[in-house]
Design a protein around this nucleic acid. Structure first.
Lengths: 182, 182
DNA sequence: GTCTATACACCGATAGAC
DNA sequence: GTCTATCGGTGTATAGAC
C-alpha cells in the first residue's frame, strides 16, 4: 500500500514544477522509489499520480476546511478564523503553491478541469452558506465568498512572484473581518 | 523580421498551455511557421521565444497601463478607470490567462523569475504612487495596490477554474471605487 | 514491492537544399 | 526566410529478475 508520506512528496513536486515539469525522474527522486515502483503503485502512470495527489488534497480540504465550515454549533467568525488557520497550514504560510491553480494553468487543465471546478465551487458555496447564516443576503454572501478564494489564490501568485509572503499573510489576517463586516 | 502578429500567436500558446506545454510543434502550428523557421527568428530556441513573448507583454503593459498611470495631468480616478479598461483588454475580458502567472507557476519560474518579479513590482509601485497622489498614506497605498494586482490575478485563476469570467468583471468594476475610498 | 534494463514516442534543436 | 529530414536527449511506460 502506498504511504501517505509518499503522496505528500509527490504533491510537493507537482506544486513546485507544475504537471508537465513533474517528470517521473523528479517524482522518483522525491519519493526514493524507482520509476517502475511508481508504476506498481500507480498503474496508469503520471496522470493517475496527479489524480491521486489531487484527490488527497481534496480530502484534506474536505476534512480540515469544508467540514469545520459546515459545523452548525459554531459561530461564523470562529469558523472563518479556523479556515484561515488551516489555509495557512495548507499553503505553508504562503510558501507553497495551490495545486488547483498549478493544474488549472497549463495543459493539465484539459484533464483535471472538472475536479478543479468542483473543488473551487464546493469551497466557495460552503463559505457562502456560513455568511448567509451570519445574516448576509445571498448575493453578497456569494460575492464575498468568491472574493475570499480569489484573494487567497492571487496572494499565492504574488507570494511566488515577489518572493514575499506578506500579502498572503495580510489577506488571511483581514479575511474574518472583511467577510463579516456589515 | 518577425511580425507582431507572430509574437501574439506565440504568446497565445504559452498562455493556454504553459511553458512546458508550449511545444515547438504547437508554436509551429499556431504561427504557420516550420520549426526550423522559428529557429531562424529565435536562434536560442524556445527559451528565447518565451523571453521575447514576455518582453512583448511587458512593453504592452508599459505603454498601455504603466505610462497612463504616471500621467501627471490626469486625476487618480480617471487613470485607474483607464487601467481597468486596459486590463480588461489584456486578458480578453477574463478569458485569457496572465503570462506572468503562467510562467511563475511551473519550473519556468527558475528561468524568468527576475523579469516576472520586476514586472509585478513596477505595476504595484506605479499604482501605489497614484494612490499616494490621491491622498492616501504610503502604507495604505502600497497595501491597496498589492490588493488590486492580487485580486486581478486571483480572478483570472477563478475565471479559468470555474469557466466564469464574472468574478473578473466584478473585480475590475469595483477597483476604482475600492482603491480610492477614504 | 523494488530494482535494472530497455522500448518507443516526442521534445528541442540542427543540417542543408531551395 | 522557408522547408524536409534528421539528430541526440529525455519523457513516459514496460519487461522481467529478484
Amino acid at each position: 500500500m502506498v504511504k501517505n508520506e509518499t503522496i505528500v512528496q509527490l504533491l510537493t513536486v507537482f506544486r513546485r514544477y507544475g504537471y508537465e515539469g513533474a517528470t517521473l525522474t523528479r517524482l522518483s527522486e522525491a519519493t526514493g522509489l524507482g520509476k517502475a515502483s511508481l508504476y506498481h503503485h500507480f498503474p496508469k502512470g503520471k496522470e493517475e499520480i496527479a489524480a491521486v495527489v489531487l484527490n488527497y488534497t481534496n480530502d484534506w480540504m474536505a476534512a480540515n476546511i469544508i467540514a469545520p465550515l459546515g459545523d452548525k454549533e459554531r459561530q461564523g467568525l470562529s469558523k472563518i478564523k479556523e479556515m484561515t488557520k488551516k489555509v495557512n497550514e495548507l499553503y505553508s504560510c504562503g510558501q507553497k503553491s495551490c495545486i488547483l491553480a498549478v493544474l488549472v494553468l497549463g495543459e493539465s487543465n484539459d484533464i483535471f478541469h472538472n475536479q478543479i471546478q468542483q473543488a473551487l465551487k464546493l469551497w466557495i458555496d460552503t463559505l457562502a452558506k456560513v455568511l448567509i447564516e451570519a445574516g448576509l443576503d445571498e448575493k453578497t454572501a456569494l460575492y464575498r465568498a468568491e472574493d475570499a478564494i480569489l484573494q487567497i489564490q492571487g496572494s499565492l501568485i504574488l507570494a511566488r512572484g515577489l518572493n514575499d509572503t506578506k500579502p498572503f499573510e495580510r489577506v488571511l489576517n483581514h479575511l474574518p473581518e472583511t467577510l463579516l463586516k456589515v
